[in-house]
Nucleic acid binder design. Sequence first.
DNA 1: GTGAAAGCGCTAACAA
DNA 2: TTGTTAGCGCTTTCAC
Lengths: 353, 353
Amino acid sequence: MVRIRKGTRKTVAKTPDIRTVAALAKVSIATVSRTINGSPVVSDRLSKRVWQAIEQLNYFPNTHARSLVSGRSRFLGIIVENITNPFFPELIQSFEEVAVAHGYEILISSSNSDAAVLANCVRRMLERKVEGVAVLSFGAEAPVLDQLVHRDIPIVLAEFRLGDPKVSTILMDYNTGIREAIKHLVELGHRKIAFLAGPYKLHSAITRENDYRAAMEEAGLAIQKNWVIECDHTLKGGVAGFEKLQALATRPTAILCSNDMTAIGVLRAAYIEGLRVPEDVSVIGLDDIDFAEFTVPPLTTIRLSRADLARAAFEALRLQAEEPDNPKIQREFLVSTNLVVRGTTAPPPAEAK
Amino acid sequence: MVRIRKGTRKTVAKTPDIRTVAALAKVSIATVSRTINGSPVVSDRLSKRVWQAIEQLNYFPNTHARSLVSGRSRFLGIIVENITNPFFPELIQSFEEVAVAHGYEILISSSNSDAAVLANCVRRMLERKVEGVAVLSFGAEAPVLDQLVHRDIPIVLAEFRLGDPKVSTILMDYNTGIREAIKHLVELGHRKIAFLAGPYKLHSAITRENDYRAAMEEAGLAIQKNWVIECDHTLKGGVAGFEKLQALATRPTAILCSNDMTAIGVLRAAYIEGLRVPEDVSVIGLDDIDFAEFTVPPLTTIRLSRADLARAAFEALRLQAEEPDNPKIQREFLVSTNLVVRGTTAPPPAEAK
DNA sequence: GTGAAAGCGCTAACAA
DNA sequence: TTGTTAGCGCTTTCAC
């Protein structure tokens, strides 16, 4: 075994490289490379010897050398809005699962919905030569992404069409879930339904609000002034949003929230105000994060599957990478939503009817 | 500008490399390399020309080539227990922040407290030539880590001394926080205090339980049989643990939980059983995840700072990497805990006194 | 089917 | 101070 001096009093086995394996197996390094990469031309006899040597040395290829010569890093980037929002870890987990199964490593970044931070993420990913980027931050700034488009790196965006035909998009069918939610509330007897929106810099926030407005109109319900409030998809934002609603002359009897974090903030704020959910006010979230089932009371919410979203994102990237010149590959994906009724919705209080 | 044909109807600028820059700046590639790496020997005149060329070409170095020749990948690995537990994203965020500030990229993996999964994570990190690994999964299997130790890769472990003098350890001073918690409950009048433990395969679970037992003894309180139940640090586990406690002949009036997720599960289970928190039963968590402040009622919990933990982990890795031959560098770090009193603790119900 | 050899883009040792 | 050059570990022609 090749050994090198390390310090003065210790010898350490040098990390084996392809030459070490070739020497032990008594073949050329080309044969080792072919064997590892599953080239069909290698004879069984040599292949066996090579694998044996690999095992014996506990060898694995140097991915940097590999990437350098092949031009393929086997890295995929995923940019989320904020890893601290439970929606995203769940999304990342699903994405990682499928990516790793296909031999990719993933680079994770949070954009915090900030263009400068996003630019930095993209830059770092470019440096690491990612083979594709899933921008699941729901509020990407197009200019920065040009860097990627310009370098012909596969991209998939959530909820936003970049215009470039080579960029894939995943659309969320919020409409279905939101209509179900409004219908559910109407059937319970609600007519005063407010909406706590997400930050308007996010495409998702705007889409969700539009779908709420459409669903209200469809149900023949008026939206009072100040019943739609911009929040920020955080717990704190939900608290603040609820307080603004409480300050209104005409209070809503039900609140639809742009995401679960907002809804959980509302639950907390209602508790502090001494209001009971759902007896005094009904609350509905959107996302159905794992936590939603465990709030007090458990949250009625519109489910958006992280696993579906993650799978679509990976598939979009894989298609672009594998068939770069096929103009007919699927470029748009749709992820569905549906209402999950739990404990935060009930008929409005009698005096409000 | 160098251009290559791409497809049939489009020409694309080839990604600029160090040679492109050298040619444009009319210097050698060595000078470009020196300039980028901040070598002090380059003259201002040439340095200026080089930076100008770099800017003009929007060039950045190929990290794979760099890693290959320098042997430094500028990758750090971080292995957490489960990214889906909010404690960990908060930890990752802090770790990433400081790592990126120092020019490192991070590779994130969840071990799910499973030795085989952990082995796979370590393997993937080894392939990417990480320069250090923070194993913050609180339940690492020593045999797998030998792979890292053997290759002289800096390691830092949470809550576990590997025995190898080159492996750093971060210890958590749960003792302080847990004693505060027990003292707080005793002062409120509680004497029957149960403990919902974490999974025993985690070192943290065992340490926390031991500290609970010590604190109880110190307070002169007896621990009844079946008052210590192994859960799994999840919401579901907390629900199950609470139900087991309710089935007991002598029920505790207060429950200390091994982590916040368990405590939140207890809150949910109590709600379902029709018990009020804190009037009927007091609950204390451990971690102080962001959510803890927003439960209903807000959770009294023992705070363990993710930022402190992340900083200690990075610092341990940096010290090992930068001074590999200095036997006197700090190898042990201590992260403190303290009680945060919120709304889930109150005096026990009268009939239980 | 197998091997020799030419790089991939970069850093660092050595020359000048 | 600057340039020339030899690899880093691997994949991939191109001969045989």
